[in-house]
C-alpha cells in the first residue's frame, strides 16, 4: 500500500513541469520512503532519510530554485527513445531480480556471512548499527566523513564570492 503511494508520487513527479511542485513532491517522497524504511526495521536509516531528504535537501533545492528559474521548458524531443530505453533496462533488471533470494528469507546469504558476529555484541553497545558504523567499519566511516567534507569544500570553491579584482576573470558571459 505504502509502496503504491510512493509509486504514484514518483509518476506525478515525472510529469509535473513546475519545479516548485517537483521540490515539494520530492519532500513528500522522502517522508514516504522514511516510513517504508521503518517498516523494514531500519530505524536509524529512516531517521536520517526524514531529516536529510525531507529537511535539508528540500531547503537546498528551494535555495537553488530561488537562484534559477522555477519553470521547466517544454520538452523539445519526443519521449519515446528515453522511455523505451528505460523500459528495456527495467525488463532486464526484473529478469535479473527473479534470480535473487526471496524477500525475508532467513537462509539468504546476506544473513549468513558476518552478521551473526556483529549481533553477538562484542563491544557491548546495544545499538548494533552504531557499533558497526563506528567500530567494526571505522575506516569506512572515516572515508564517508572525508567525502562529506570534500563535498562541502567543493561547494565553497564553486559558490564563494571572489573579491572584485581588476581585469575580470568572469569568462564568457
Amino acid at each position: 500500500m505504502l509502496l503504491v503511494l510512493v509509486a504514484i508520487v514518483v509518476l506525478v513527479l515525472a510529469s509535473v513541469r513546475n519545479l516548485f511542485a517537483v521540490v515539494v513532491l520530492s519532500g513528500i517522497y522522502s517522508f514516504l520512503m522514511a516510513t517504508v524504511m521503518v517498516a523494514l526495521d531500519a530505524v536509524d536509516v529512516a531517521m536520517t532519510e526524514a531529516a536529510v531528504g525531507a529537511g535539508i535537501s528540500t531547503v537546498l533545492l528551494l535555495g537553488a530554485l530561488h537562484l534559477c528559474k522555477s519553470e521547466e521548458a517544454k520538452p523539445t524531443h519526443r519521449p519515446w527513445l528515453p522511455l523505451s530505453l528505460s523500459l528495456a533496462t527495467g525488463v532486464l533488471l526484473i529478469y535479473g531480480a527473479m534470480g535473487l533470494p526471496d524477500f525475508a528469507d532467513p537462509q539468504a546469504p546476506i544473513h549468513q556471512h558476518v552478521v551473526p558476529r556483529y549481533l553477538q555484541n562484542e563491544v557491548q553497545v546495544p545499538n548494533v548499527v552504531t557499533a558497526v558504523l563506528a567500530s567494526f567499519r571505522g575506516y569506512d566511516t572515516l572515508g564517508e566523513t572525508t567525502v562529506v567534507f570534500t563535498a562541502g569544500a567543493g561547494v565553497i570553491a564553486l559558490l564563494r564570492r571572489r573579491k572584485p579584482r581588476k581585469g575580470g576573470e568572469e569568462g564568457r558571459g
Binding site: A42, D44, E49, V114, V115, V132, L133, V148
Partner: peptide, 13 residues
C-alpha cells in the same frame, strides 16, 4: 544491521 550502516552513510553522502 549491515545494510543499515551502509545506507546511513550513503544518504548523507
Amino acid at each position: 544491521p549491515l545494510p543499515h550502516v551502509l545506507i546511513l552513510t550513503a544518504i548523507v553522502v
